[in-house]
Design a protein around this nucleic acid. Sequence first.
DNA 1: CTGGGAAGAT
DNA 2: ATCTTCC
Length: 436
Amino acid sequence: MSTDALPQSMVALVDCNNFYASCERVFDPALIGKPIGVLSNNDGCVIARSAELKALNIEMATPAFQVYPLQNRFGIILRSSNYALYGDLSSRVMQVLDSFSPSVERYSIDEAFLDLSGMQDSVSNICQQIACKVPIYTGIPVSVGAAPSKTLAKIASHLAKKQPGRQNVCVFEHADDPELLIWLKSLPIEEIWGIGRRLGQKLRQAGIETALQLRDTDHRWLKRNFNVLVARTALELKGTHCIHVDDAPEPRQNIMCSRSFSKTTNSLAELKEAIRFHCQIACEKLRKQNSLAQAVLVTIRTNGNRFGPQHKEARAYPLPQATDDTALILKYAQEQLELLHQPGLRYQKAGVMLLDLIPHRPMQLGLFQKEQASISEQGQKRRQLMQTMDQLNNKIGKQAVGFGLARKEANWQMKMAHRSPRYTTCWQEIPVVKAK
DNA sequence: CTGGGAAGAT
DNA sequence: ATCTTCC
């Protein structure tokens, strides 16, 4: 290689606008133009807002009970989280994005990074196409930001959304684009991707208050006085593509399922019911990503916001062998729960975590490998049972079959007073069209 | 009356 | 293990 410059890297971030609120509108157009808020699990607080709700100065994470009294006056519509719907619409959006680049990283339910390096078409063109096509195909409006690095693409997408004239697209072909520099100069340090509240404070103490300042701070100094991540972020701001688009992420290293009770409980039976539920969901996820767990951890905790005796503890238990068998994992989880549980305390939350996950490589048994076959005969049967359960649950609906009964009204079930229909994933709830 | 899940650094 | 960050 000579001194030729490396091919310019180019990353796009596609971000769904007010994703959950937009999802609610797709099958209920009456919501268009109205202030919509989507609530967290248990209908606790607002976690997504339509533009109209933002305009009413309802902040993110506002407790639901503070919004209820305003609903009538401002015509605010609140919805419980409908993850079945959001997940499905998310994969539709991702599918459309797949047609724009061979390398698409599903970064979160509503965001994706696209590697646009070395594309034939101009980056601006591609980004405009994305911003135009995704809403047509899915009903979800998106913003698209593109730049030489992920961190800059994040900033670009922010501008795409924020600045009205841009029509949801913002492209910086070069990291030294004068317009970008002006923006970096006014961008507060803690609004940069990867710099949270804590680091922001520390950086400010060191006199670094804007994105531009961070970008121009010595790399080694940052590494020494902060950490590699901050140093890397500074490089990214310079346009060096350090955080690559990862379109084939490794399987999860651990899987956690936990939830708060709608009311605290001191009943061991109720805790067991919750653990059983979480265990089954966790094991489903485990099998879905084709892994085996080597340890299971059970955690319970009382409500730390209340007075009274507190208890917050987790117990990990190493499984005798790596497994994805719900029945087995469940058995050990229940044992751990009994060891943890202190009668008389009121618990607020319970959870299960599967740890030390390793890939499961199903052995191809030869036709005459009798010995091996007999050893794993029980295992094979269990495996089939699990597979059948997963298939049924996939087909009919979450937890259609499982271990023990899942009571709809159970205390640990989510409060979901305002959930919209699962239009796309549940036969009973598909939209009905009336034609004259 | 204020969420759940995961990764990675230290 | 704990802390921090992200969405």
